[in-house]
Design a protein around this nucleic acid. Structure first.
Lengths: 156, 156
DNA sequence: TTTTTTGCAAAACCTTTGCAGTTGG
DNA sequence: CCAACTGCAAAGGTTTTGCAAAAAA
């Protein structure tokens, strides 16, 4: 579960920015909220609710999963966070803020690579022309085999 | 949940062909098995295990869901069936047999269109060149907005 | 009769929800 | 103080699994 070329959001440069935004919306800064936000900033890429609950290093007192999900939902409504589903397994959450980044997920090893903005525009255009579909890879990214797994053999 | 341009598999032309194949593998032809196979042939496109269990017309005695899943797994191992995940909700099962057809799914209305074989080769090539990823749309199809929903406004 | 398959119940996994109690402002 | 938030427990949706009973060959 590696993630490469992760860039930082522009709109929210750090936990403090986000917490301020929350305050601005009449929301409160609870301990859980603070930890969730900090964890998202500390993460090196998309993380699951479970990873946030457990703490990225497995240390720290566990957060309640339900509270994590509720917080992620709140943050998503504010445009601070978004999530996507890459294959089976739990959803993955990332800081949003500087546009809708897209990902390619490997269905064998779980690796997720971030694609630079507009990287899939050509693909989207092709699909629009041929099928009339408006492909959106932000919530359901493209799944396939990463370069390493593609060489190594078939899929699972 | 409409599906257009569905073509019939080549390798297994009808329920009987499949049942023979099953027999050939030392498997037994139970009532449930027979019904599952017939339902797959009667379906006009990808169907969920639940739809198979309930019967396409909602009539007929319900099949046990666990048995349906077990049968689908068996049929998948034999290459008779395959399934994919289009967005949230249950997996969808289709007859396989004449190659890996691919689908485009609408994340708003649930519509699934079948893409003619090789229809996404250009897209795959593009992704391979740019990112080194071997995209596979057979198990996790492209999700987006169908022409109708794309016109109608934003997504859910 | 033997081996496969079923039916039911339970569980696993991810996520949401209800509610009483706690906490932030 | 009061609304927002938490923690826990329960439930919802999809899929899997265990096991004794039933059915296929």
């Amino acid at each position: 579960m590696t993630v490469s070329s992760i860039t930082r959001p522009l709109q929210f440069q750090g936990p403090a920015t986000v917490l301020n935004a929350l305050r601005g919306h009449g929301l409160r800064i609870s301990t859980v909220r603070r930890v969730v936000v900090h964890t998202l900033f500390a993460a090196e890429g998309p993380v699951s609710a479970e990873e946030i609950a457990a703490g990225l290093d497995g240390d720290r007192t566990r957060l309640d999963l339900a509270s994590v999900y509720r917080n992620l939902e709140t943050l998503e409504e504010l445009g601070v966070v978004r999530h996507f589903h890459a294959g089976h397994g739990p959803g993955r959450y990332v800081l949003a803020g500087d546009g809708e980044r897209e990902y390619l997920a490997c269905e064998r090893c779980g690796e997720v690579v971030e694609v630079e903005r507009d990287g899939l525009d050509v693909v989207r255009a092709e699909i629009r022309e041929r099928f009339g579909y408006e492909a959106r890879f932000t919530h359901f990214p493209i799944v396939g085999l990463c370069p390493q797994c593609a060489q190594g053999g078939a899929s699972r």
